[in-house]
Amino acid sequence: MLEVLKQKFGSAILDHHQNYGDETVVVDRASILEVMKFLKQNAACPFNLFLDLGGVDYPNRNPRFELVYHLYSLPRNRRIRIKTALPESDLKIRSVISVWESADWFEREAFDMFGIHFEGHPNLKRLLMWEGFQGHPLRKDYPIDKRQPIPVMADLV
């Protein structure tokens, strides 16, 4: 799969490894949508099951954030991990919701937890936290004991 990706996307494939037997490809974020479309639609090994999406925060790195996608190919029983890096100053990436519908809530969760904007997502709202929550809790600079303002109940009558 890696050879095919390299051939097709060339310089957009930044890095790859197979540590612990997990096939991992690092992709330039500008081409994420094209790479994902190809991964799902190619005939040789279609990765049709969108398994997981999560962010990781590396405050000492530049670019600071990383998005990690896990895909599965039901016809071939193979897995692939796609990673892409996002700088703090321009924290956005194109949504893959047009490729897999199930990416919807995973992207909302990454937005909620890390503040990553997914362009083209039709309903990018917080998922686990409530509206009015301040900050993004899974960022490393979010203190574990930070207090949040308690929402005030509106009068019923």
């Binding site: 997981d52 199930s102 809530w105």
Partner: peptide, 26 residues
């Protein structure tokens, strides 16, 4: 699924759980 990132320290750097019923409820 458990996605675990280790930085070599005693604390997991990041644990992401892939809960099976997350896509079901979505």
């Amino acid at each position: 699924g458990f996605y675990i990132v280790s930085d070599g320290s005693m604390h997991p750097y990041r644990i992401k759980v892939r809960p099976p019923c997350f896509p079901l409820f979505a």
